[in-house]
C-alpha cells in the first residue's frame, strides 16, 4: 500500500535522512497502519458525529488585543546558533526571486 518512493518522498518533505534499512522498515510499518485504517473504514459510523478537532469540548479560547513586552533584540538573537545582528543569519535559501 505504501511503496519505497512514498517513504522517501515523505522523509524528504520532513527533511529526515533515512537509511535503506529504515526505508524498508518504515514501508512495512506505514503499510500496516494504513491497512488498519482500511479495516476501521468498514465500521458503520453513520450515527457517530465526526470529530473535527481534538479539543471539541473547549471552544473560542482567546486573548484581548493587549500588548506584552517583546524580547530584546539581544535576547532574541542570542538564542540562535549564528546571529548577525540585527538579523538572524541562515544558510542561503533559494530566493523566491527571478530566474535571469
Amino acid at each position: 500500500m505504501i511503496d519505497r518512493e512514498t517513504v522517501e518522498h515523505v522523509a524528504h518533505l520532513a527533511r529526515l535522512k533515512v537509511t535503506d534499512e529504515e526505508i524498508s522498515r518504515f514501508t512495512g510499518q506505514l503499510s500496516q497502519i494504513l491497512e488498519h485504517m482500511e479495516k476501521m473504514k468498514a465500521l458503520d459510523v453513520n450515527h457517530v458525529p465526526p470529530t473535527f478537532h481534538v479539543l471539541e469540548e473547549m471552544v473560542n479560547v482567546m486573548r484581548g488585543d493587549t500588548r506584552r513586552e517583546p524580547l530584546s533584540q539581544e535576547d532574541a538573537l542570542n538564542m540562535a546558533p549564528d546571529p548577525a545582528p540585527p538579523y538572524f543569519r541562515v544558510p542561503k535559501v533559494i530566493e523566491l526571486g527571478v530566474d535571469q
Binding site: V61, R63, R68, P70, A76, M79, P86, Y87, F88
Partner: peptide, 22 residues
C-alpha cells in the same frame, strides 16, 4: 528595528502556546 517585535511564541520556541487575538 529588525527583530525587536518578537517573543518566544512568534519565534516558535519549544513549549509555547499560541492564543488567538479576539
Amino acid at each position: 528595528e529588525p527583530n525587536t517585535q518578537v517573543c518566544p511564541v512568534c519565534l516558535g520556541l519549544p513549549g509555547v502556546l499560541p492564543v488567538l487575538n479576539q
